[in-house]
């Protein structure tokens, strides 16, 4: 039995559809269900919070997982193997601020940057050689500049609408992210055949050549 951890939330429907197209999932799977583990043929599907998926896979509670690259970038030490780009769930990390924040790099004085993604933010600022105070929020990051809480924000956007509605403009694109198939580094070697079969089915469903990985 292979356990597959699926992210509830925005990627859930796409994950389920892909699994169906690949012929790996036949049973009903509902994100709001109270049943958090569903067995289907040789698989057990585990419904988890997106941020917990790398942890499940890292500790081997699930052998495979489907999760956004954005989540993986925030937990880079999890050591999971990334096997496939699933294509859906596209989003970008951007640095944004009010229009007058253009030319932020030239500004003197210490910047305050609000974000839900302290690691990404810290790494980006270090690359630019800017020191800043990072303010960690858990939601509504777009409000921070208007409230005087921060000068800039680092956030995930898919269309950019939320930014515009809050009077913010994109200053830089830090990274792009799509959904990934991840595997426990030991399982994908110890149970190579089962994992390879699942990966080949997903590849075919994604319309890429089945190279058998």
């Amino acid at each position: 039995m292979l356990s597959v951890a699926l992210s509830k939330g925005k990627m859930f429907d796409d994950s389920v559809q892909l699994l169906r197209r690949a012929g790996l999932l036949h049973r009903e799977l509902v994100a709001e269900s109270r049943q958090l583990a569903v067995e289907d043929g040789p698989f057990r599907f585990i419904l988890a919070r997106a941020r917990d998926v790398p942890t499940y896979v890292e500790y081997g509670a699930a052998q495979l997982g489907m999760v956004g690259k954005d989540v993986l970038l925030e937990s880079p030490d999890s050591g999971v193997a990334e096997l496939l780009d699933l294509g859906f769930g596209y989003c970008r990390f951007v640095l944004a601020g009010p229009p007058q924040a253009r030319g932020w790099e030239a500004r003197s004085g210490k910047l305050r940057v609000a974000t839900k993604f302290p690691r990404m933010t810290e790494e980006f600022l270090a690359r630019r050689g800017k020191s800043a105070q990072i303010i960690v929020l858990h939601g509504s990051v777009e409000l921070a500049p208007a409230l005087g809480l921060a000068d800039l924000i680092v956030d995930l956007v898919s269309t950019g609408r939320t930014l515009r509605e809050n009077g913010l403009v994109e200053l830089e694109s830090l990274a792009e992210a799509t959904a990934r198939l991840v595997a426990n580094p030991v399982s994908f070697r110890l149970r190579a055949r089962e994992v390879a079969t699942a990966v080949a089915a997903l590849r075919t469903a994604l319309g890429r050549e089945g190279d058998g990985r």
């Binding site: 050591g79 999971v80 193997a81 990334e82 096997l83 496939l84 990934r180 580094p185 994908f188």
Partner: peptide, 9 residues
């Protein structure tokens, strides 16, 4: 080394 086969590809 990071087993990131997506980035490798």
């Amino acid at each position: 080394s990071r087993r990131d086969f997506v980035a490798l590809e």
